[in-house]
Design a protein around this nucleic acid. Structure first.
Lengths: 330, 330
DNA sequence: CTGAAAGCGCTTACAG
DNA sequence: CTGAAAGCGCTTACAG
């Protein structure tokens, strides 16, 4: 910058203003500075600016992992919004491990990140207390009902209701549920929503028709095996997510049962495998990229407008009917 | 830091040393400073340190995308190594788009990142010229043979050879190849390796048995359809990656052909879907996390030891035989 | 509209 | 072993 100023024959103060606040400076000086900057190939040093402005234009994103088909789209949405807003993103993969969560909360402090997006609901209030006071945060998807932190979520209870309605409309009455991982906020919302919706239709759910899963292929497969061993197996199964639904379909196929002729199966998420499975999976799609973008925009808004009031955005979802659901066998 | 120094009754210089270079300071002063730091909850401001040391302890990672089952593991490996080495990672999703590549190369400059990992081979030398002079770079996987940039890769020609050997050992002679996206460095290496290996076994490859794909499910499926329409269809197919192999299997199933009874299929990568497909896919596994970790370690080594000499690490791979390959029909 | 000066929070020669 | 001072590269009141 000093070089630029010298070349343009102005002070560094003016050079700085010409580049960062063009309207504070006369048109011809501005042009001179810009030309000078161009000719020396000036690139602003954002770390110096960060130190001076006490603002790093960096946000931290804490996500359990990216090795599935769900988070990457969310992160892409965040990334786009961050780039558009002039922020860089430090990605923290927590693996839901205390140790790594701590490590990243630490980075948040020492790198003076301006805000944080949390996709890992297990980061408790305990850790939050350790954080630099007042850093804007928005919680994504895994959010407790009574949370005061701004959030962007989907309505997981309603998702379950949509699935149940879809199956009931086909005439199913004996509907089972393969739930998410134990302790999962999202999973418990979906399970509760499932039970509520069934009750709403005047249908009873036998306790052994509502099994825990692990959001994974293997868990879905194992749970489905149990369901099929049942003396009165269900005619339809609502799985907490697509991966476990895919595993459940596999269990059916393995026993020579046809989906959807013998049994209907539904998932949630609409990951890319859902469209490619055999048969293609009926599911409830969440607009993942929009979720990520919305969250990032909310965070940046909070950082820049200092409007710290709690706001909970709920993103709408939609049912994607494919070939894994049909009326039950007569 | 000033507060800490005051509380400990020393100068900020000493406080800084006590915290960052403990051996430069007397034991009791060191203890006093540490206690003071503890009691005020001191957290170093890394942006100030970065400005002073002209070193940001940040690296940029440029990756085409993370919405597949391949890159996430690599990134996890990088992430671990970065955290261990005290570096933060800024993830840049290029989508192989010039515009975004430019945007991130810009961030590299202005954020004063200490180095960069490039997983996107399409970032040409042209762009590289725009970069701050001398920033350490290591190129991962998508690397031209004659590149002077340090790199970590696998031997893609050898991967193809391993696949061909595996199929030939079963007795296959009419082996086809579904290649990667046109213009892909990795894909062309695998195709060349395939042709070389076939020639080495004295086998001829008909031109229409070596088809382009797109590394995707749909491309694999489409290419397989063409292969099956052929008057002399192959008895085995080596696909450039698992996704296209999964698509190819689907095409077979759709025509009522059995894998591996009617036709053998192989992929490369060992993504998680490969183990869960029906039948489970024989493939060649790349130690993705190790690739990522190695690349990050090389980069950090380069940054810190200033050893800028070119080094090309080649990570070994291994064949995973599952149920999609078998001897051809008599 | 422009410049001189202070300061963001560290680290590190240089003296002592 | 410790301290005073300079400086990393910016931005921004404050004067003019």
């Amino acid at each position: 910058l000093a070089d630029v100023a010298k070349l343009a024959g102005v002070s560094v103060a003016t050079a700085s203003r010409a580049l960062s606040n063009p309207d504070l400076v006369a048109e011809n000086t501005r042009d001179a500075v810009c030309r000078a900057a161009e000719s020396v190939g000036y690139r602003i040093n954002l770390v110096a600016r960060s130190l001076r402005k006490q603002r790093s234009n960096t946000v931290m994103v804490l996500v359990p992992g990216i090795d599935n088909q769900f988070y990457p789209d969310i992160i892409r949405g965040m990334e786009n919004a961050a780039l558009d807003g002039g922020y860089a993103m430090i990605l923290g993969l927590t693996g839901r491990a205390q140790k790594r969560e701590k490590a990243y909360l630490d980075l948040l402090d020492t790198r003076r990140a301006d805000g944080m997006l949390i996709l890992d609901g297990s980061i408790g209030k305990l850790n939050r207390k350790d954080m630099r006071f007042g850093v804007p945060v928005v919680q994504v998807l895994e959010t407790l009902d009574d949370s005061l932190t701004p959030s962007v979520t989907v309505d997981d209870r309603n998702i379950a209701r949509m699935a149940v309605d879809h199956l009931v409309k086909f005439g199913h009455r004996r509907i089972a549920h393969i739930a998410g991982r134990d302790g999962s906020i999202v999973g418990s919302h979906r399970r509760i929503g499932f039970l509520d919706a069934m009750r709403g239709h005047g249908l009873v759910v036998r306790e052994d028709h509502c099994l825990p899963g692990d959001y994974g292929y293997d868990g879905g497969r194992a749970a489905m095996d149990k369901l099929l061993d049942h003396p009165e197996p269900p005619t339809a199964v609502f799985c907490a997510n697509d991966s476990s639904a895919l595993g459940a379909m596999r269990a059916c196929r393995h026993r020579g049962l046809s989906v959807p002729r013998d049994i209907s199966i539904m998932g949630v998420d609409d990951i890319s495998d859902a469209a490619n499975s055999d048969p293609p999976l009926s599911t409830i799609a969440q607009p993942r990229e929009a979720i990520g973008a919305t969250a990032m925009e909310m965070l940046i808004g909070q950082i820049e407008k200092r409007k710290l009031q709690t706001h909970h955005a709920v993103i709408p979802v939609n049912l994607v009917q494919r070939q894994s659901t049909a009326p039950p066998r007569a």
